[in-house]
């Protein structure tokens, strides 16, 4: 099983839960906020390898982290994106804000 997150230098790698909705997005927001507040995180990579479902609550959560990271001139990355998650990222326009890192 993957951990919830991993820190590599100034990059926080987040492994969102299998289903990223309003119910689960809050926990992701909370722990990433905590780590960002403590450390010298500049970038966040969302690794969706284990995530099969995401709705607009996940989009809102990513946008929230984007605002934070922008202040530090970092970037938001995504990887492990399935066809379902890809459609959500595309429709919401998130690909304009995040970069794909495989």
């Amino acid at each position: 099983m993957e951990p919830d997150y991993k820190v590599i230098e100034d990059t926080l790698i987040v492994y969102p839960p299998q289903e990223l909705d309003h119910h689960t997005a809050f926990a992701v927001k909370q722990y990433s906020e905590e780590i960002i507040r403590k450390g010298m995180i500049r970038n966040i990579i969302f690794d969706f390898s284990n995530t099969t479902f995401m709705d607009s609550s996940g989009v809102g959560m990513i946008m929230g982290r984007y605002r934070l990271i922008q202040e530090k001139s970092g970037y938001i990355g995504v990887r492990g994106v399935s066809a379902a998650i890809h459609r959500i990222l595309e429709l919401s326009g998130l690909y304009k804000l995040v970069k794909v890192c495989e």
Binding site: A25, K29, D55, S56, S57, V59, G60, M61, M63, G64, I88, L91, S92
Partner: peptide
């Protein structure tokens, strides 16, 4: 559009339902 930006809403709910 969202009436609750403080809750990190994206305002994409109706757009997704439509799509």
């Amino acid at each position: 559009y969202t009436s609750k930006p403080e809750l990190e809403r994206s305002g994409m709910g109706f757009a997704f339902m439509e799509a």
